[in-house]
Amino acid sequence: MSALTEYTITALLLIGGAFTLVGAIGLARLPDFYTRLHGPTKATTLGVGAIILASVVYFSFQGEGIGITEILITAFLFLTAPISANIMAKAAMHLGVDVMDGTRGSPWEQ
């Protein structure tokens, strides 16, 4: 494995870990449900995406070929993340979850 590959894998791993952690900090720190929705659904998806990319690079340089399963996991995560965010937002609006002070506009229920 060349030095460049090692640097790439190291960078991807650290970026992935950092985004996952930032998403979780957002989940723990932000004040209401709707703002919390932003932290994990996206930052985490990108974080896991970077970690999966690191895995693809690592195993392809072990001489095991490009991993199809990794690509399927990434595609699946990116397809499902907006759907689960949307359906959770709908459930929260239905239950009338509190919004933080200073939010402009309001959720509607139909």
């Binding site: 932003h38 659904t41 996206k42 930052a43 965010a85 949307n86 709908k90 609006m93 959720p107 139909q110």
Partner: peptide, 18 residues
């Protein structure tokens, strides 16, 4: 469009009117 909006951080599409 709604999925794109949800995927780009900072915006979540919450609902479509009937």
């Amino acid at each position: 469009l709604a999925s794109t909006i949800s995927l780009t951080p900072g915006t979540v599409s919450a609902d479509v009117s009937d």
